[in-house]
Write a protein that binds this DNA or RNA. Sequence first.
DNA 1: GATGAATGAGCCTTCATTCAT
DNA 2: CATGAATGAAGGCTCATTCAT
Lengths: 213, 213, 213, 213
Amino acid sequence: MGAKVTKKEVLTEFRTQEILAAARRVMERRGGVEGATMEEIAQAAGVAKGTIYLYFASKEHLISALMSQVGENLRRELEAILTRPGSAWERLLGALQLCLDYLRRERLLFPVYFRDLPRWLSRANTPFQRIRQLEEEILAQLTGLFSQGISQGEFVAADPRLLACLFRGLIRGVGYYQWQEAPEIPLTEAEPVLRALLGGLRRPRASQEVLSS
Amino acid sequence: MGAKVTKKEVLTEFRTQEILAAARRVMERRGGVEGATMEEIAQAAGVAKGTIYLYFASKEHLISALMSQVGENLRRELEAILTRPGSAWERLLGALQLCLDYLRRERLLFPVYFRDLPRWLSRANTPFQRIRQLEEEILAQLTGLFSQGISQGEFVAADPRLLACLFRGLIRGVGYYQWQEAPEIPLTEAEPVLRALLGGLRRPRASQEVLSS
Amino acid sequence: MGAKVTKKEVLTEFRTQEILAAARRVMERRGGVEGATMEEIAQAAGVAKGTIYLYFASKEHLISALMSQVGENLRRELEAILTRPGSAWERLLGALQLCLDYLRRERLLFPVYFRDLPRWLSRANTPFQRIRQLEEEILAQLTGLFSQGISQGEFVAADPRLLACLFRGLIRGVGYYQWQEAPEIPLTEAEPVLRALLGGLRRPRASQEVLSS
Amino acid sequence: MGAKVTKKEVLTEFRTQEILAAARRVMERRGGVEGATMEEIAQAAGVAKGTIYLYFASKEHLISALMSQVGENLRRELEAILTRPGSAWERLLGALQLCLDYLRRERLLFPVYFRDLPRWLSRANTPFQRIRQLEEEILAQLTGLFSQGISQGEFVAADPRLLACLFRGLIRGVGYYQWQEAPEIPLTEAEPVLRALLGGLRRPRASQEVLSS
DNA sequence: GATGAATGAGCCTTCATTCAT
DNA sequence: CATGAATGAAGGCTCATTCAT
């Protein structure tokens, strides 16, 4: 009997993932949430339209689950990098590389993340609170990193949370650039420039300089 | 007689601006183009639904006009700054300040700009080509600035267009940050950090260093 | 004072005709009533949209007046022909020629007459009763002609009103044909065939034949 | 299993016909296509508005299907009659009877056929091309009949296609008459007169007469 | 559980008509 | 009288969601 329950659970999990994958494909193809109809997602998943609603309460819940998956993974991998030994700068470079990797990997999902998610996040009572939470956790990880770096004298003195936000903003800016302007330019070309930019945050050794206009 | 024509023109201009302002308000309130219906825009403008179509041929034309207004102004002001005398770095700082000003001023319109415009830009035969053109012109202005800076040895050697894109990406990242995360943090606090980041692009005087990992 | 009133009347009449002519042009161009907007008619007439409503109570009244004009003329000319001396057959040929002339002349108005008028005629309390009346009068004229022809032994015995209706139906069929199928074929080619067809109604001299299956 | 598929197909076919019948009823009631809204058609069919779009891609497709049904049947039955043995005249009488039957049967659909179809036929890339094709085929059938009749000396010398068009025009004229003027007069009364008229096309035996004024 | 036919609220757009100037 | 900006009812169509089978 326990086996049977497990079997059913496995099947449920399988279907869930199948639908999520289908939703991802369709959204990538249609370039966003609005263009992706439940009908098309169902077809792509090889199930009937009504079946989706057995696994997800609504379209929003479906999208939410999809986005959460990515966030969950990013948070886990980011955690691994940030707890590595080494200087804050080295770990920041690791985080940069990871984020650029995600940009590359999830490139096609970017429009959804960028355009459609924000609207939903602004609404209360939405299934997207989980994503908001994940974003907050990721931001907290980065904030912790900058905090360490500042207290260890590696980075210039600044609000660590602001630095984290700007780092994330920078990554998003790159993603947006890649998405809108230059899908043909490999992100690897952007990495040195990003390093140079972030290098601007490093505190010159044996220097009393502070940020000033 | 001339006065009458002027009167009519003034009224038309007034209504046009009134509707644009209403559209802006509704989009801000609804968080994007999709959520803003012509009905609600009309109500916000204090006119009937059909009246909007006396001033704009379609919803797309209306949005297009709204976005173009902002782009037009930004381009003009940016041009003024970039043609000022001074070092490339000084002008870059000026551009930075201008863009941050725009972010502050057009803060509420940002979601529209960020999320909805991209989809339309990807379609041909759309009234949004004007905006695409404006974006390209602005990008060209920035590219020119970086180009000068590089050839004059002020900035590290890199593709100037990539730098321009990253600059813009950075600004957008900040805007996105401001929009989503910290409407309460005044952007003025972000400026020094942005300067520090951009400072990473400056070439150390009398140095042959190039970007390397 | 009397002169002034007359002057005004003349102007009113002039405007009325001008608007009617414009409506005709627009309907011809647009291929019917539905495609012709009051806006376009007003432009074609060189007046403002609202002005039309000073001369015609509604779009229906305008169309009605336009169609009545044609019917009025046809009836008058038909009357002239039918009161000419000569055999019923000769007068029938005269009527045929007249109707074909009208078809040629009013060719471009035919779609309106054929498609749009009928719907309105079927409604009560419509300004189109005048047209219905004109049609009835024209039909009565033709009925009278056939009636004479039958009583004088020129035509086979049949309900004269039915014959009149069929004659009209034949004309309309030709018009429809011309309109839909062969605008390039001059109607003159159809005339001999129509004569042959109508000749089928003539009673063979000194014959006792009656219509039978 | 086969039964299940059949069941579904039967249901689909049933609904399709049900909607077509509803559309027919509404158009008859409203006197044309323009007056018949999808809403009202849906109500008449006892389904929701959206349901229609499960069976027909658009309003035009719906109307097109309706008209094609009739044309398809007429063409088939006409073909059966025209390939019967016998003189051209006998077959022409058969065709006449068939067409009058259709006029009687489809009487209420006539306005649609007469008024609305023509406008659509003039547009390219429309689902109505099938109807255009049907019309052409029917006309070709009639043309062939006249062609035979002429070459066999049964009918006066004339362009057979013109004769076919006039025949069709005559039928339409009768239909139009019936529709507008005398729904109370049974068409059976019109048939002898039509025969007489068509008889005018017959070539007098052993005569060299040609059509002349 | 799975299905997919059915639903209907909601959207953008048109255009005959009105009325303040 | 003339104007034309403003109106708003109505129409075709979409698609997330429901529910009988």
